[in-house]
Design a protein around this nucleic acid. Structure first.
Lengths: 331, 331
DNA sequence: TTGTATGCGTTATCAG
DNA sequence: CTGATAACGCATACAA
């Protein structure tokens, strides 16, 4: 792999081709130029293995062809997938991605935004947790799953409909007494609507339902208490469960089985996300699948278009249901 | 969040502070400057909210403060973790990460290397699969888990010792007839040494062992055939299993249980990687844990130092054993 | 249509 | 120690 230490510039190409600097620039940028000149330049470019220096280019244009993606981490599968798809969507459009991890730290969220703005990114896609996040007004900014106000476009799955769908499915699968498990969130993030949709769906389907919505904190303790109460210490035990996240579903299933009950025979469980074990193995559970790829595509195409004019403040993408072994499907 | 459209430059700062451009530059870069001048400049910087334009800076310095990380994807947990830790290690040192996904495509691997070189990255960290990968000779290049030849530093876990450790553990835990499951790889990647270490460990511990090393291809079919043979259709069934990857272990455990056998009661299983379910839940299995964070730190510090002189071609980092519910620990 | 000259924001070189 | 001034590589008005 060759690549001269002293990088070759347009001047070198111009000299080699025997034309002027400006002509080379035009050829490179696809502007009209005499055919014979074009050929000479192209030959020289080939010969010298010339490539434009992005720094110099962007110094003039004030653009960097870089979009920042800000999210908590990449350990959580949903974030990992989002990262991957955003990267692909950007690459397809000739953009680079600047990846930033917040680790759920509100302060870092704000710092990182300043940082990437200073780095002159052309846009920001963010999945943050600070309800009072200050958003730059001079660089395109779109959020994923966080509605920060009318002026900041938010791309999200149709969480409400997803919740309704889960309720409808549980009813269809023969459940009568169901519950919704959701990790708290004082702030009104979009995913919170899953619960609301579920409630709505239960009412439509005539299902008896309970809610368990402990405040934040990663422990599964409150779920265990709730499930013990509603599965063991009652004579009308639950037979269906909707969890606001596949991760919650995973924990819940563990708890249920530790009680000696079976999933899906005794309790059917539907999660939300559509994750797979270890990334690409079997589904974690029956789940409302988020269209992560489309979320990424949409978010990217919005930041890049930079046309926030006729845009609805909240763009909802459709979700689908996928059986995953924790429900009793008919067939 | 304010940020003037027309970005403020050093010239503005100089004018505001009433000093010369060069002086501002020195203050910004921490070069010696008269105390009174420094103060004036700093005040002006504050007042104008000035930030250096990285493009302009790097245009001169021919550096970008960016390191490329090239790997298959971020869906596989090991890659996701590596991405995260590399990012952190880079950020700590004031570098940015340019993330590139190969999707295991040899051609893309090569293309991406060219691409990032053209983008003037200051170094490359790569986890690739093309045995004949062409490595640029003008930009620092270090691999993870792939030994490409003496001149390219490779950072890897101590796979051999890990394999030995697994064998020793299985022996210690009372196994007598064990086997090693490894997904093939014609190429001699570092992880292949896990099997070699395991063999060595078995000999040391006096364990009877078998190997199952099907060629590539993601299907678990060959493992099922092998396990059926060695668990059901023999009168000296295995009682211990070492899998070259937690993912393989996960598949194997599924197969074993589908036979009606129990893990760890009937068969103890040790994997390799130290992954956790859904990113941060309980361990996938008892496993030889890779020090992913240290791998990242090491790789980063090497590319950045750019001092490949006295460097051993292969840097092995120590692994540890961690019980994860698929072995019968004493306590 | 092609070539020339200038500027983008910094750093670095040299005179003061 | 400070302050002009010349690059850096490219784009682009403007002149030829």
């Amino acid at each position: 792999m060759k690549n001269d230490k002293r990088s070759v510039t347009m001047v070198d190409v111009a000299r080699e081709a025997g034309v002027a600097l400006g002509t080379v620039s035009k050829v490179i940028n696809g502007l009209p130029v005499g055919e014979s000149y074009r050929r000479k330049v192209e030959a020289a470019v080939q010969k010298l293995d010339y490539h434009v220096n992005p720094n110099a280019k962007f110094l003039k244009s004030e653009r960097t062809n870089t979009i920042a993606l800000i999210l908590p981490n990449t350990i959580i599968p949903f974030f990992a997938l989002l990262t991957q798809y955003v990267n692909m969507a950007l690459e397809k459009r000739g953009y680079k991605m600047m990846l930033c991890f917040t680790e759920y730290d509100h302060h870092r969220e704000q710092e990182l935004i300043s940082m990437v703005v200073q780095n002159r990114v052309d846009g920001i896609i963010a999945l943050t947790y600070d309800p009072r996040l200050e958003v730059p007004d001079n660089v395109p900014f779109v959020t994923v799953d966080r509605f920060l106000g009318g002026s900041v476009p938010c791309v999200a799955s149709d969480n409400f409909t997803g919740g309704r769908l889960a309720a409808a499915k549980l009813a269809e699968l023969g459940c009568h007494r169901v519950a919704c498990l959701q990790v708290g969130s004082v702030l009104t993030t979009e995913p919170n609507k899953r619960k609301d949709g579920f409630v709505s769906g239960c009412m439509t389907a005539g299902l008896t339902f309970k809610l368990c919505n402990p405040p934040d904190g990663a422990t599964a303790e409150p779920f265990e208490v709730f499930l013990r109460q509603e599965l063991l210490e009652t004579d009308t035990p639950l037979d269906g469960l909707f969890c606001s996240t596949d991760l919650v579903a995973y924990q819940a299933i563990g708890i249920i089985r530790s009680f000696g009950l079976r999933v899906p025979e005794d309790v059917q469980v539907i999660g939300f996300d559509g994750l797979r074990m270890l990334g690409d193995q079997e589904p974690v559970c029956s789940s409302i699948v988020q269209p992560i790829s489309e979320l990424a595509e949409t978010a990217v195409s919005i930041v890049i278009s930079n046309d926030f004019a006729g845009l609805p403040p909240l763009i909802c993408l459709p979700v689908t249901y996928r059986p995953g072994g924790t429900t009793r499907e008919k067939d």
